[in-house]
């Protein structure tokens, strides 16, 4: 996508200084299982993700994509199995180097700018330059003074992404971050995400949108009923997926 790359270059001039890119990678998941009230929601599941490729997580509604992201980010504890980052179980230090944009963004009852400042202060540096930089990236610089809760749904999603970027994460989990965005905003977000990946952030991106997955993915992980049915390089996945279910999914036939 030459257009995207050209624009990405001009849009993302903000320096990202990371001493050891990918210090928390690779991510290894072994025998991961999540049960709730005796029902198996996820797994058993094995997965290894490494630095340097943009992983897109696809699958029908209820496949377990959001749950998997929450497990990887340490928001919920697995019933069994282990998740390790660079060989260690997830700890607070790892999580500080990660950021997640949830499927439904939770914004503070403050102004747009104050929402960014809040995370910057958490990291010990509330720099005006950083704040206006990330807001400009997502096209919200004009709304900085506005209460965040009064933003439109799409603007709220963009603010949630800006907040995640403000922490300069090594790993960025995005749970359908463009679900309620207009086409222009979708492209804008995709450029930002691509640029973040190119600057050394590991991006794990959940989407249902086949077109979006095609544009973004280096590799696709296809989740179905709590299992990883396949993990395939993007170049192959969209034309010749390995699993029958993924083929049905790509063809627009629901596979639950």
């Amino acid at each position: 996508m030459p257009m995207l790359e050209a624009q990405a270059g001009t849009l993302h001039t903000m320096a990202v200084n990371r001493t050891q890119p990918g210090a928390t990678m690779p991510l290894a998941v072994r025998g991961l299982v999540l049960d709730a009230n005796g029902t198996r929601l996820l797994g058993p599941l094995d997965l290894t993700l490494s630095h340097g490729s943009l992983s897109v997580l696809m699958g029908p509604n209820g496949a377990g994509k959001s749950l998997l992201l929450r497990l990887l980010h340490g928001m919920i504890k697995p019933t069994s199995g282990e998740i390790t980052w660079a060989g260690e179980p997830l700890n607070d230090d790892h999580r500080r180097r990660q950021a997640m944009v949830f499927q439904t963004p939770v914004l503070l009852r403050r102004s747009v700018a104050a929402n960014i400042d809040f995370v910057l202060k958490q990291r010990g540096a509330a720099k005006y330059a950083t704040r206006s930089g990330v807001l400009e990236k997502v096209g919200l610089q004009d709304k900085a003074r506005q209460p965040a809760r009064l933003l439109s749904g799409g603007e709220q999603q963009r603010l949630a992404l800006a907040r995640a970027l403000a922490t300069e994460p090594e790993v960025l989990f995005l749970d359908e971050p463009t679900a309620s965005l207009d086409p222009a905003s979708v492209l804008m977000i995709e450029e930002i995400v691509r640029a973040a990946q190119d600057q050394g952030t590991k991006v794990i991106f959940v989407t249902h949108d086949v077109g979006q997955a095609r544009r973004l993915a280096d590799e696709v992980i296809f989740l179905h009923r709590g299992h990883v049915l396949e993990r395939t390089a993007a170049a192959q996945f969209f034309d010749t997926p390995n699993s029958h279910e993924a083929g049905e999914f790509l063809a627009g036939r629901i596979v639950l």
Binding site: H73, G74, F102, V119, Q122
Partner: peptide
């Protein structure tokens, strides 16, 4: 109830 998960994700200390 609304903020808890976001705060955990951001590693917000209990005091903050």
């Amino acid at each position: 109830a609304e903020y808890a998960e976001q705060f955990r994700s951001l590693s917000v200390s209990p005091r903050h």
